[in-house]
Structure formats: structure tokens, C-alpha cells
Nucleic acid binder design. Sequence first.
DNA 1: CTCGATGCAAATGCTTTGCAGAAAA
DNA 2: TTTTCTGCAAAGCATTTGCATCGAG
Lengths: 156, 156
Amino acid sequence: MAQVIQDQPAEHAVGDLTDELTAYMERKGLRSTSQRRLVSEVFFSAEGHYSIDEVLAMARAKDPKVGYATVYRTMKLLVACGLANERQFGDTVTRFEIARHDSHHDHLICIECKRIVEFEDDEIEAQQEALAKRYGFRLVSHKHELYGVCPACRDK
Amino acid sequence: MAQVIQDQPAEHAVGDLTDELTAYMERKGLRSTSQRRLVSEVFFSAEGHYSIDEVLAMARAKDPKVGYATVYRTMKLLVACGLANERQFGDTVTRFEIARHDSHHDHLICIECKRIVEFEDDEIEAQQEALAKRYGFRLVSHKHELYGVCPACRDK
DNA sequence: CTCGATGCAAATGCTTTGCAGAAAA
DNA sequence: TTTTCTGCAAAGCATTTGCATCGAG
């Protein structure tokens, strides 16, 4: 059998993301290199919010020779083709997450352990729209981050 | 007469803010210097969201010799004593705004002209609280920014 | 007179870019 | 072979700090 039907489909099928990237690169005349394949693969496989350094570390685990600039440029490429989002949380480092086209989500961040929980709240989204309209703004995007202490850290 | 009662009280009475700062500095054994008085005065008098460079420019209009580091350190001081908030919007620069203790507010930012409008929405605040509770988080702070196109820029 | 504050300039931390050599197409 | 990509190292840029000097207390 060529395709395995999974009982519990992964949140993001790594293959689908890779296909989208490949299509984008072909369309733009960009080259498929071993580094781009490696970096995108480790990023697509790892669910989370990673800094360049973290993606670099994951990539170097499989190929110690990859350079920082390559990871940097590959992440920019993923952002450009809409497969990754760039985020800045409390600190100064830029983090990347896999972009989901279907749903908007925001973040709940533990200020103790830095854990990041994603949430989706349609009511808040709707109220944001209403609020923007009230001020005459055409809403393009938003950033909504809640900082607090997570259950695990509260009990310590 | 020593005190002037104003018909239209300023949003933030510069004098009150200055008094709070003075009290804080005395409490901490910090010195009242001409630079600190100048920087805090221009910042308290100017309503808005200013970067270090902008505060520096305002201060230098009155005293060309003030240094960047002094403004930097004075703004940190204002943040430390709760009289200013530090914010990062879309770009890389840090901006400061006068902290109001009574009300929480968030921002609506025009991506064209960079105009920043402040808003307050109790319903959204309440929903944030509910959401944090749902995840077991004790909510400490939040960042809520809406990016869009303001009425003036839509008509251009 | 003492110790904190200032202002310069240098250091830092992260991001971005120039360029010579490497590797896709 | 041509053109893009890589990896290093250097440049940018906003922020932060060390230090000699200045000035408030």
C-alpha cells in the first residue's frame, strides 16, 4: 500500500506541508537543496514555537554543518510562502510556528516556565471585529497574548 | 494663589505624576537631577507612545546636551516605579506610554499611517479572564493589539 | 566630601547581508 | 555551465553597560 490511512491524523501532515513548499519553490524557480529539505522537515515535524537557534539545534542534530544563516533564510522562506508565522512573545527573540490556514489562534504564555498554550475563542474574535468597526478600522490582523502562571507552576 | 483649579483637568496631571516620581526617588534614595526632571517632564506632558529617540528629541529641544543613555535609564526608572509602560508594536523599537493605574487599555494600530488608538473593552477583558481560568492559569497581564487600516487611510 | 548620575563610547544580542566557494538545474 | 544557495564572517541596529567625570546631597 502506498498511503497509510491514519486513525488519528496528525495535526499537520508533514507531507502536505512539504508538498506545498515544493510547489511554491517550483513556482518561484527556487532550488530544492538538502538544507532546505532538512530545515523544513524538522520544523514541520516539531510542533511548537521555535526560535532560529532552536530550529538550528534540531537541524544540526541531523547535520552538524548547517549554518545559522541558512536556517534564518529558510524560515523567512516558509513565512513568505505562508507555511510559517513569525511571532514575538515577551522576550526579544523571534519565534516561528506552523501556519494553519483554517483557524486563527492566540497564545496563553506561562511567565514561569515559558510554556505556550494555544487557544481559539470565536467570541473574542467577533468582539474584536465589532470594536474595529466601531472605530472605522478595517481589521487586518491582531496579536492577543495572555501572560500568567500555569497550573503546574502555581502548585510549586 | 498657589494652585490653579482647571476647568478641564488634563488626562494626567503632570504635577501628580511628578510628585509620584519624586516620592519614589526619595523612598529609594535616588537623586533628583536636572536631566531626570527634564526627561520626565517632557514625557509626562506629551501624550502618546514614544520611542527612546523621540523622548530624546523632545528633551534635546530644551537641553541639547542630554544623552541617549540618560533618557534610556530615566525611562527604565519610570517603568520601575509604575509611571510608564513599555510596549512593542509591529516594529522593533520599544515605545513608552504613561501608565494609568485605574484602567487597562489596549491598542488599535493603523498599519498605513502608524496612528495608535487606545481602546478599552470590559467584555473582552472579562472573556480573557474566563479563558485563562478555563486553562487553569492565573492571569497576570496581557497584550492585545489590533492591526488594520484607519478611516483616514481607507479613503485615500 | 561621597556616592549616585551623566554622557560618551564600547559591548551586547539578535537579525540581516556580502561574498567566495559549493551545488542544483 | 549558469545561476542560485550555503556558510562564514562582517555589518546593522536597538538596547545595555563600563567607566571617567560631574554634581546632588
